[in-house]
């Protein structure tokens, strides 16, 4: 009889309070950027972005291989890597941040702010971005859009093109994390 009385409590414990694992990882995060230009908009996509989500520390780390951005046109890709980003010298961009007011156990979609440092071309700037976090009890998904100012990261745009290319770049991200055991 005692065992029977305990059963509802055991069910509540196993279903209601399942704690998420400590770390979540994606190797196939998506980052796309978009820049308005007079002649032709510049768009590229990277599906090989690495990101680690640490539930306990409420932190997120992102590592982007700049050469893994794919463009439709080869000349754009060449200019991006050789002239603007200088991918040989600065092969990666990184972001490390803290999710503010994060409640990891909370299921469903919610909007949170992430505050951290973004490093591009060896230049680190503080950023605060809005992201949508979705937890289905198994996987976390973090999506969002932000913009960066090209002059903050000393991206050199030739004078002849500077009036034709937007001063800001729109960056979208979509990370689907799986639990990660070291």
């Amino acid at each position: 009889m005692k065992k029977l009385l305990l059963l509802p409590f055991l069910i509540i414990i196993s279903f209601g309070f399942t704690k998420p694992k400590k770390q979540y990882l994606t190797r196939n995060g998506e980052v796309t950027f978009f820049s308005y230009a007079a002649a032709e908009n510049i768009k590229a996509e990277n599906n090989q972005v690495l990101s680690l989500l640490d539930i306990k520390k409420e932190k997120i780390a992102v590592n982007i291989l700049m050469r893994a951005f794919e463009f439709e046109k080869s000349l754009m890709q060449e200019h991006f890597n050789d002239s603007y980003i200088e991918s040989d010298i600065y092969p990666r961009a990184t972001f490390e941040g803290t999710i503010l007011n994060f409640k990891p156990e909370e299921k469903g979609k919610r909007t949170k702010f992430i505050k951290g440092d973004f490093t591009l071309r060896g230049i680190t700037k503080p950023v605060k971005l809005k992201a949508e976090i979705d937890y289905d009890g198994n996987q976390y998904t973090i999506t969002g859009v932000t913009t960066i100012d090209v002059k903050d990261y000393k991206i050199k745009i030739p004078e002849i093109l500077s009036s034709k290319i937007a001063k800001t770049v729109k960056i979208s991200f979509n990370f689907k994390y799986d639990s990660y055991e070291k």
């Binding site: 190797r27 090989q48 690495l50 590592n63 291989l65 050469r67 893994a68 794919e70 092969p91 990666r92």
Partner: peptide
């Protein structure tokens, strides 16, 4: 071959 993060990346 594009480089590596923790894995080798090919496009």
């Amino acid at each position: 071959y594009k480089g590596y993060l923790i894995d080798m990346i090919l496009l």
